[in-house]
Amino acid sequence: MRYAVTLAPDDNGTILVTVPDLPEAVTFGKDREDALARAVDAIETALMGAMAAREDILAPKSVDGADYVALPALASAKVALYQAMRAEGVGKAALAKRLDVALPQIDRLLDLRHSSRLDAIERAFAALGREMEIVVKAAA
């Protein structure tokens, strides 16, 4: 998942970062590199807030000429799992029952900052009738 970000000089000499798809994701950095690194944390925080509030998470939109920040692959897989659960109308308790695991395990699967195992996420997708596929491509 890649999110477009807007970088703008702030009045205190830092770089202000906003995310058009996630208005609540706002951060700053001392320079461009720092600002882009902090943007990942701001995006993850906004997504975790949406998940906690049981809100839909829409796919990020493309923006011509924008800078982009990519979420780590594991966080992207977890967001995709959450989106699949929403699409299927399956809550955390129902997924826990399908997987025959305790509810806290599902909480960890959906926690963007927890180091879940990919095979556990793959099993969760399978319980929703979905497959997880990994694509590796040349860097842009």
Rank of each mutant, 00 (worst) to 15 (best):
A94S: 13
A75C: 05
Y68P: 03
D100M: 02
A37Q: 09
G29E: 03
R117K: 15
T45R: 09
V63C: 00
A37R: 11
D107C: 05
D64C: 08
G91H: 11
P20L: 02
L22R: 03
V79Q: 08
L22T: 00
A42Q: 02
A46R: 07
A73N: 05
T45C: 10
L118F: 15
G89K: 13
L71S: 06
A84C: 13
Q105I: 14
V136K: 01
T45K: 10
L128T: 08
A93Q: 06
V135M: 06
V79I: 14
A35D: 00
A42W: 03
L103K: 12
A87P: 06
K78M: 07
M51W: 08
A46T: 10
A124L: 06
A77D: 12
Q83Y: 03
T27C: 07
M132F: 09
V69L: 05
V135G: 03
R123P: 04
Y68V: 08
H114Y: 15
P23Q: 00
L118A: 13
E24A: 11
M85I: 14
D67N: 02
L36R: 00
S76E: 14
D41L: 06
V26Y: 00
M132E: 09
V19P: 02
L81Y: 08
A96Y: 04
E55N: 12
A52K: 12
P23Y: 02
G49I: 06
A59S: 00
Q105P: 09
I57L: 13
A127W: 06
T27M: 01
P23V: 02
K97Q: 00
I57K: 10
A120E: 15
F28E: 02
F125A: 09
A42V: 05
R130C: 04
D31S: 05
I134M: 13
V69C: 01
A42D: 04
D119F: 15
G91L: 09
D31H: 07
A75G: 02
V136W: 01
R123Y: 07
V101N: 12
A87Y: 05
L128G: 09
A50R: 15
F125M: 13
K61T: 08
D34S: 11
S62F: 08
A37Y: 06
S115W: 13
L22W: 01
V136T: 05
L36G: 00
K78S: 07
E24H: 03
A50W: 11
I43M: 01
A93F: 04
L81R: 08
A46K: 12
L103M: 11
L36P: 03
A50L: 15
Q105L: 15
A37D: 11
D56V: 04
L118C: 10
S115V: 13
A127E: 06
G65A: 13
V26E: 02
S116E: 14
D34H: 11
K61P: 01
G29M: 00
G65R: 12
V19M: 00
S116H: 11
K30D: 12
L47F: 11
A96S: 08
L128C: 12
K30S: 12
E33Q: 05
D119N: 14
L110I: 07
D34M: 03
K78H: 06
K30I: 11
D111W: 01
A77T: 06
F125K: 02
R123M: 09
P104H: 13
E122L: 09
S76D: 10
V135R: 08
Y68G: 07
F125Y: 08
L112R: 03
I57G: 11
A37L: 08
E88G: 13
L99W: 09
R32I: 01
